[in-house]
């Protein structure tokens, strides 16, 4: 597993280095969009004078960046590898395709930690809106909740194996993630059954507002995480089985 993670980190590094322009513009585009949004909201809303609203905006942006990364770590790579045409080579790994994907997710998450920390400080510096938060606590909660998004990623990746063109679903999920990071999944309510929502609420109360984390809340986050992760893996395994039965892997 360690070798596979190392391999995926190398792959990311090669791609980031060789396509540095793409890396830099991607970073700048994301940061730039947020800055525009931040100042736009600040200038037109009456509540913008309240620092807590702007804190929430910055914090929400960091959570959304993390969420898209966690979801995209698998769904984006399956989709890209399908388009690029070497997906079946990943299936030829003796470790098995899901293990290769797990290695890729871990590598992607490590990259995300660096990326979001940098982005977080850059955003706070540019907006002059400094959050009093611990990045360690932030990542702790995010990683508790991340498996739910990985599960959704596995689910969509399963569809990609069968249907190949799932760009519209990806766009929809990305859009839905904006709503999810704004939702309130704690204390337990109907929203809590949506993926990642309890983690979002726990992060907001524990990391941003400095409140004590309740054990029951942590358990809800874990249950949500494990539930969606298992659901995603089972759905992926079924799609994988269907794709193998109908010879769909590698047919672009």
């Amino acid at each position: 597993m360690l070798q596979l993670i190392h391999n995926e980190i190398r792959l990311q590094w090669y791609e980031m280095r060789q396509y540095w322009f793409e890396t830099v513009t991607g970073f700048a585009l994301l940061g730039g969009t947020f800055i525009g949004l931040f100042y736009g909201i600040k200038s037109i809303t009456a509540s913008s004078a309240e620092p807590t609203s702007l804190d929430g905006l910055v914090f929400g942006f960091l959570m959304w960046s993390f969420a898209t990364s966690a979801y995209g770590s698998i769904s984006k790579s399956v989709s890209n590898d399908t388009q690029r045409g070497y997906l079946e080579q990943l299936f030829l790994s003796p470790a098995g395709f899901p293990t290769v994907m797990m290695a890729r997710i871990i590598a992607e998450m490590l990259q995300t930690i660096v990326f979001i920390t940098l982005l977080g400080y850059a955003t706070m510096w540019l907006t002059e809106n400094w959050l009093e938060m611990s990045f360690f606590s932030f990542y702790l909660v995010m990683f508790l909740g991340a498996p739910s998004l990985v599960g959704v990623g596995f689910l969509i990746s399963g569809f990609t194996l069968i249907f190949k063109q799932t760009g519209a679903i990806h766009a929809l999920v990305m859009f839905a993630l904006m709503g999810i990071v704004a939702a309130n999944g704690l204390p337990f309510n109907i929203i809590s059954v949506l993926p990642f929502t309890p983690a979002v609420s726990l992060a907001r109360s524990f990391v941003l507002e400095g409140q004590q984390a309740e054990v029951i809340d942590v358990l809800i986050v874990l249950a949500n995480s494990i539930g969606y992760f298992v659901l995603g893996l089972v759905a992926f395994a079924r799609c994988d089985k269907y794709a193998r039965k109908h010879n769909l892997i590698g047919q672009y």
Partner: peptide
Amino acid sequence: LGGCRNINWRL
């Protein structure tokens, strides 16, 4: 499999 498409052209 599937000729030379079967590798990562970005590397």
